[in-house]
Each structure stands twice: as structure tokens, then as C-alpha cells.
Design a protein around this nucleic acid. Structure first.
Length: 393
DNA sequence: CGTGCCGGGGC
DNA sequence: GCCCCGGCACG
């Protein structure tokens, strides 16, 4: 318990310092975080590095008196060697450069917070975190990521993130898809988007957005393969923004209970926040139009494979608000079309009886498809001059 | 003007 | 509930 808590606290600091993108790993196995720390990088003892650098910020979280491995001179050498290898174009040693950056906590948080809304896939992960916290306890906001207020959810997120980076934690069903790991010594941050990682490196490690260092970011991160790349695509609801946790969290957690939930429930710290986090994610799934959804840039990598009718439509999906007795074909059309639009457009939660009319969709309706002369083949809604159910926008 | 569909009404 | 239609907004 003590060891776990201490390490979790350290990790939380790391997360709070560098942004919330790590959130995407919150579902990983948290119970393995103890052994993770030394294996993170390709031969680099990141945890030791991070711990040493953050000691000043973390004195409270280390109150349990757990000894953290001090950074040996060999590891410093390793860092430098690795830096030299990876960063062939860099002249100054990042090992020297990194520690002061830890002290820039407010600035870092600010920049990371600024990334919340404009980044791509990493952005909405961050948003998830932001939307998650206030619900269980409305007073919990971004301030909680400051080192003085560590919450349990923060502990878990980072703990799980660390666990996911461990090779043997692959069996954990993480939310990660394509992931990018920061190779900067002492960092090891993993983000889900390349853009986010570049920005992370540029801002945190390269010290600002100088154009000169623009291309160098590529040297500081590596792509981390994740087996979830295969599991994510067949999501029956390829919504662009929420698809990530729609496919991974809701669908899988409900169908295979105890698989992903195990980390939360088994961990001694998971009593309050993570479970509610989980619940909220699930709840948002039941709202076809979650207002927290951030519109994802069209170019962001989405893993929504549009599946033709009757292909992978077996899992009972969330009932839409407009539930009627519709045919199977209409149902899959609703699932494939309606959620995508409503979520990416972040519709108001109280849609339905608002007087706004949706813009005319480009989808063909029963009238166009069948013609007026075959009106009996229209869906009932079209026959009644209601919103078409067979070909929703 | 054709179309989609909301709101309302009849049964 | 089902069914229809006036009327409006949109393209």
C-alpha cells in the first residue's frame, strides 16, 4: 500500500506536469505499477530520473518513506548516450535541461491545459479527464492536477499509464491505439497523437516553439505499438470523437466485465474517483449527444471503419433517444449515421423538442429513394411526414 | 419549388 | 396509440 501510493503520487505529478494526455491509459492494469518503474524505456531508468528530478515537488507524496532508487552515474551516462544516439542534431544535453523544466509546473500546466481543446485525439482524452472530475465532485477541476492536491483518480490514471508501458501489461485492455512515447530522458510520456507528442516535446523539452526545433521532435518520440489497434476498429458506433472510449470502454467492459475493471476494483485507491470515472464514461455513452464532446479535427486519425450493413452489427448498442420499432436495417442506419453526426456536432443535450431544425442532410430519404408513387415502401416516419428513420442524417 | 419534418389534430 | 396534414425552414 505504501509503496503503491508513493509511486502513484510520483506518477501523478508527472502527469500533472506534462498534461493529461496520459489519460488514455487509465484503464490499464494499475496493480502492476510497482514493478513498472524500472522497465519503462529502452534501458533507461526513467522512474529514477523522474523521481530525482521531482523530489522537490514531491516531498509530500513521499512521506511514506519509501526509498526510491537514486539515479546512479551509470544511468546518467546511459541517458547521455541515448540522447546522443537519438538526438544526433542536438547539441546540448537534455539531461541537464530537463530538471529545471520540472519547476515550471504552472507554465507547463497552462500549456497543457491550452491543448485541451485544440488538439486532436489527445485533446479529447484530456477532455475526458476534465469532464470526469467535476461530475463526482464538482469542485474538482484542473487545479487538482497541481502537486498540492493529488486525487485518487489522478493516482490511478498515472499508475495505470505506467502499467501499460510495461511489456507484460499488454494483456490489459487499454484505450491506447497508436501511441507515441516520448524518448526524452526522464520523461517517457505516452500520447495518443503524433501532433500532441510533437507539441509536448517542443514545448516541454525543446523549450518553446522555435521553428528550428520543429523537425527535431521526431527524434524524441517513438511509436508504441498497441494491440488495441485491432480491437478498436470494429466498433459498431464509429463516432469520431467518442469512438475511442466508446469502442474500448463501453463495449468491452460491458461484455466482459471484470476484465478491465479489475485494476480499479483491486486497487486499494480506487474507491472513489475511478469507479465514478468509469460510470460517467458509460453514462455519456447513453447520451447520444454528449455536450462535452469536442469536435475532432477531420484529419485526426480515427479508427472508425464504416461497416456495411449486416457486417459487425451484433452487439446490442445503446438505444437511441428516438426509439421506435424499426427494422434491423433502420437500426444500423441509426447507429451508423445519427450518433456520428450528433456527437461530432456536439448537439445540445436537450435536443428533441427544441425548435431548431437540423440543416438539410444530404442523405436520401424515403421520398427520394422510393418516390412518391411507392409511398407504401417509405418508412412510417416518412409516411407520416416525420423525421425519416430509415435514412437519418 | 421540392423536400424534410415539426407541430398539431383526427380517429 | 396510429395516421394524416398544415405549415415552415431549408436548399
Amino acid at each position: 500500500m505504501a509503496a503503491v501510493r508513493s509511486r502513484a503520487g510520483l506518477n501523478t505529478i508527472q502527469m500533472g506536469t506534462e498534461g493529461q494526455e496520459g489519460m488514455s491509459y487509465m484503464q490499464c492494469c494499475g496493480q502492476e505499477g510497482v514493478s513498472v518503474q524500472k522497465k519503462l524505456g529502452p534501458g533507461i531508468e526513467w522512474s529514477a530520473d523522474v523521481s530525482a528530478q521531482q523530489t522537490n515537488l514531491l516531498s509530500f507524496s513521499r512521506s511514506s518513506g519509501v526509498d526510491l532508487p537514486y539515479r546512479s552515474p551509470e544511468s546518467v551516462e546511459m541517458d547521455e548516450i541515448m540522447a546522443a544516439m537519438v538526438l544526433t542534431s542536438l547539441s546540448c544535453s537534455p539531461v541537464v535541461q530537463s530538471p529545471p523544466q520540472r519547476d515550471l509546473l504552472p507554465a507547463d500546466m497552462e500549456c497543457c491545459g491550452g491543448e485541451l481543446s485544440d488538439s486532436g485525439s489527445s485533446g479529447y482524452w484530456s477532455w475526458d479527464h476534465g469532464s470526469v472530475s467535476p461530475a463526482p465532485s464538482p469542485s474538482v477541476t484542473e487545479m487538482d492536477r497541481s502537486p498540492g492536491q493529488l486525487t485518487d483518480e489522478g493516482l490511478h490514471m498515472e499508475l495505470d499509464q505506467a502499467a501499460c508501458e510495461e511489456p507484460e501489461a499488454r494483456r490489459c485492455k487499454s484505450l491506447s491505439r497508436g501511441a507515441y512515447r516520448c524518448l526524452w530522458p526522464g520523461c517517457g510520456k505516452v500520447l495518443t497523437s503524433r501532433v500532441g507528442m510533437k507539441r509536448h516535446i517542443r514545448i516541454l523539452h525543446l523549450g518553446g516553439g522555435s521553428e528550428q526545433s520543429h523537425r527535431e521532435e521526431d527524434f524524441y518520440y517513438t511509436e508504441v505499438s498497441s494491440e488495441d489497434e485491432e480491437t478498436a476498429p470494429p466498433s459498431p458506433a464509429p463516432s469520431f470523437s467518442s469512438g475511442a472510449w466508446t469502442s474500448c470502454s463501453s463495449t468491452q467492459s460491458q461484455s466482459t466485465p471484470g476484465h478491465q475493471d479489475a485494476p480499479f476494483q483491486s486497487s486499494p485507491l480506487s474507491q472513489s474517483a475511478p469507479s465514478s470515472v468509469w460510470q460517467i464514461h458509460t453514462e455519456h455513452l447513453y447520451q447520444a449527444c454528449a455536450p462535452i464532446q469536442v469536435t475532432v479535427s477531420p484529419g485526426s486519425p480515427t479508427f472508425c471503419s464504416w461497416t456495411p450493413p449486416g457486417d459487425v452489427q451484433q452487439k446490442p448498442q445503446i438505444p437511441t433517444s428516438r426509439s421506435r420499432s424499426v427494422s434491423v436495417g433502420e437500426q444500423w442506419l441509426q447507429r451508423n449515421s445519427a450518433p456520428t453526426r450528433s456527437q461530432t456536432m456536439s448537439a445540445s443535450p436537450s435536443r428533441g423538442h427544441c425548435s431548431f431544425r437540423k440543416g438539410r442532410g444530404e442523405a436520401k430519404k424515403c421520398r427520394k429513394v422510393y418516390g412518391v408513387e411507392r409511398r407504401d415502401q417509405w418508412c412510417t416516419a416518412c409516411r407520416w411526414k416525420k423525421a425519416c428513420q430509415r435514412f437519418p442524417d
